[in-house]
Design a protein around this nucleic acid. Sequence first.
DNA 1: TTTACGAATACAATCGATTGTACATCGTCC
DNA 2: GGACGATGTACAATCGATTGTATTCGTAAA
Lengths: 345, 345
Amino acid sequence: MSPRGPKTPITMQDLADLAGVTRGTISRALNDSPRVKEKTKARIRDLAKKHNYRVNVKARNFRLRRSGVIAVVFMLNIKSEQHMSDPFFLEMLGGIADCLAEHDLDLFLAHAPIADVLAHQDSRVFQNSDGVIFIGQGEQHSELNEIAMSGAPIVVWGAQLPDQQYCRVGGDNVAGGYMAAKHLLENGRRRIAFFGDVNLPEIAQRFSGYKKALEEHGVKFDPALQIDVPFEMSHARETINELLSSDTRFDSALCSSDVMALSAIATITEFGLSVPDDIAIVGYDDIGLASYGSPALTTVRQNIRWAGRVLVESLLSILNGQEVADTTLSSELVVRQSSGVTAPN
Amino acid sequence: MSPRGPKTPITMQDLADLAGVTRGTISRALNDSPRVKEKTKARIRDLAKKHNYRVNVKARNFRLRRSGVIAVVFMLNIKSEQHMSDPFFLEMLGGIADCLAEHDLDLFLAHAPIADVLAHQDSRVFQNSDGVIFIGQGEQHSELNEIAMSGAPIVVWGAQLPDQQYCRVGGDNVAGGYMAAKHLLENGRRRIAFFGDVNLPEIAQRFSGYKKALEEHGVKFDPALQIDVPFEMSHARETINELLSSDTRFDSALCSSDVMALSAIATITEFGLSVPDDIAIVGYDDIGLASYGSPALTTVRQNIRWAGRVLVESLLSILNGQEVADTTLSSELVVRQSSGVTAPN
DNA sequence: TTTACGAATACAATCGATTGTACATCGTCC
DNA sequence: GGACGATGTACAATCGATTGTATTCGTAAA
């Protein structure tokens, strides 16, 4: 009803006319350039506020040849719907989004198939953004190397790999796998399954930590206990069901994510076994559901939100032309009571 | 190593020079204008492909005075971290993102406090986007009305409310609440708690459906059974714990989301009661965890991904200058076996 | 009073595309 | 052979800001 909402927003030229100066001076004043007298600046700022002036972001970005957007690409080897439903993703995204907002940057969520993204670097992902954050390396280590060497500003969440040409941020996967396995071993477990796809670099490192713990405790590793359990819930349940129905016996399992751990608990329970009495489960990530779920989950905590911040800050440094070192964030084991591991029956 | 990655991408003028025509012709040719001869178009297209030309999106958007971005704002009355962790959010976001991608639009995720977003419509959210999708109405119905009347293109996921001036898409909350309550009643439950904040429009409608079912079954509504359980997990558990420790007795509960239902199950189980024997739980939304969790959750399904698509399509129609009607998506009750409601002990 | 100099501002090119209008070319008809 | 439509291109303004360079102004020194 009320005649609010001017359809055509006020432009910098309008403001210049109002102030009796030129666009250039307005621009400098609003950007706090030393070339404009303080008094003039103040006058212009007031006028801008009074007329509710906002710079046209599209015009500015065009002029500055930037987009003000950072793209985030998720790189698991499964379809995008499936990652998206993992709370790990969300928490990481939250950390990234918060940090980007503080720097006045927008977030572009890429949901195209990974292959497409990497195939032509001229895709929307690169065209539309000032930089790209990759979550996970998938099996695309060499492609990421190529992209980085082509000069595109990127950072990658993942494992430290040989010949790595890009800036990486990641958790301490070897230590994580080690801690988790050690915890189970110290509670008397001996047949510890490892649930996860060791073709993924991060998982492979956890796997090596797991084997190291076994070795230290004089437990021989049984290859039958390493199972390529997919991240996605329904597929995970199928795979675990098959395992339960097979000849392979195990008294505990180290899962590659909390969601996988929750699937495992559900599957095992439905199978008629008890968690943790018959089979103890340890997760990875420490997502919110892990602590509030039933039973609460023992898991390896990665500070995911903080990781998101580190990714952003690293990328911004790169955009600033600085050399940026890799970062490895430490992990810790979170032992929760109600799924506390007890000696097997 | 290899000399890949031209630092300065080819511009339309370059292409024009190469083709021996002017920018204008190139532009028209690539946009398939009838004003350019087919043969010329083909030649230009080939040349563009050969030189790997891409239009500069920033320049085009600037010229067309659009951003190519749709903003999504979440509107619950709790801090953003907390919504973000609800899988309901993610699935909706997934649907929206997929649909936007099909229309070659980007997604901007607003995570600023709601009050800020609404207070000055000149915020980033409105400045940077061609349209805004609000998820939930919170208690801001009138603010949303104002925004819509100011001419800003918006769509809102939520309940149908009186005097509504904006385009709305939502589930059938009255029917949802009704179905859920009826299900419990038909399974012999009589003391059915309602967990949710009835100040939120959607919840209020479910609540009215719930009361309608009670009435039809001749069960008197006890106000003590309506509890303002927050959406966020840890707070939900506190609230439910208090209820369990109080004098109020109940044999079942209708929750406002699946996450809340999962919290309830965990809390009740830890309290020493059995779900569903002592207390039956019904959720809302049918998120992925609901079906794969343990125990599987009986819940009211909203087709969230599809809802996301409808929101986007509606917004695009509005941007196209069309009048768009409200949409109410039907809900259905999903009864799952392992939490199947049985007669109380 | 003139000169010189520094501070403050005006001027104008520029970013890369879109699009209305003007011009050129060609075949056709009288 | 010249006028006349069509058709296909070229020309140039435009979107809204940033920024290097030129210009003006005021003031202090000569």
